[in-house]
């Protein structure tokens, strides 16, 4: 059985960042493994640890820089990795959901996984759509926002819980092959061990181009265009307590007492 985990390297924005047109100045960006994908990796690796017959393969769309993040996935226990990239992808302004679905569908066709795991969303653009779109493109079943998984490989069923709003969970059975989008908190992602990091250096990262995947360059064309980026106007009416910690805490304590806090 094969589990494919979609892993994205995302940028997080540092304090005091500056904008440069429709991007954030690179000095203020820190690149890291997408938080949700960390949980998806852990889900895949735990499945493989429980069953020797399960291979875990990661797939990422991203430039060479992303290999550092991909090595982290390999160090955590992913068996091998695929990175999709070429000049056409590098030149694209924006990879939209349809384009990503085409790319992942081509990888799925080549790898024929039984299960695909992705994070619920990516921290950077927060679309939250790729996993379910990929399922539709590949003709797989799916479940979005999964916070518990019990795999019955023999029956070809994933018993999952979907985390709905307001503390309600939906219990759902999904037929394999399927795409599951994984929510944070489903498990406790491990830290890579030193041994894992060493072993990761020897694992394979297979770089695939659009041509390798049998895809036309036209798939990166998108009608969606990012036209502006700006800092949201603060609607803040906050009254700040200044001074050192003691002074600020003293003023806050006075306020809280006025509100009747700590009266008993």
């Amino acid at each position: 059985m094969k589990v494919l985990v979609a892993v994205k390297e995302v940028a997080t924005v540092e304090e005091g960042f500056e904008l440069d047109g429709t991007t954030i100045d690179d000095r203020y960006l820190e690149y890291d493994l997408n938080e949700w994908d960390d949980y998806a990796i852990e889900t895949g690796v735990q499945l493989a640890e429980a069953d020797d017959d399960i291979e875990v393969v990661s797939v990422s769309i991203g430039p060479e820089r992303a290999e550092e993040t991909i090595r982290m996935a390999l160090a955590k226990g992913v068996d091998r990795a695929i990175r999709v990239w070429d000049d056409t992808l590098a030149e694209a302004e924006l990879l939209d959901v349809r384009t990503k679905a085409e790319l992942f569908e081509a990888v799925i066709e080549a790898e024929a996984p039984d299960m695909v795991l992705t994070g619920v969303q990516a921290h950077d653009d927060s679309f939250g759509a790729t996993g379910v779109a990929v399922a539709e493109a590949a003709g797989f079943g799916h479940a979005a926002v999964v916070n518990a998984l019990d795999l019955d490989a023999d029956a070809g069923t994933a018993h999952v819980r979907r985390e709905l709003e307001g503390g309600v969970e939906e219990l759902t059975d999904v037929e394999l092959p399927a795409v599951l989008t994984i929510q944070t908190g489903i498990n406790e992602p491990r830290y890579a061990s030193l041994r894992g990091i060493r072993m990761a250096q020897r694992k394979e990262i297979d770089v695939q181009t659009l041509e390798d995947l049998g895809l036309d360059a036209a798939i990166v064309d998108s009608p969606i265009e990012l036209t502006a980026m700006y800092e949201p106007e603060s609607e803040s009416n906050v009254e700040l307590f200044d001074g050192d910690a003691d002074a600020a805490a003293g003023n806050l304590a006075t306020l809280l007492r006025e509100k009747g806090v700590g009266a008993e």
Binding site: V97, A101, G128, A129, V132, A133, H142, A144, T181
Partner: peptide, 17 residues
């Protein structure tokens, strides 16, 4: 988010979430 990306993909529509 459990059906919108699927229907957009099926109908070939661009999707913004």
């Amino acid at each position: 988010l459990d059906y919108a990306p699927a229907i957009a993909e099926r109908l070939g529509m661009p999707l913004v979430t």
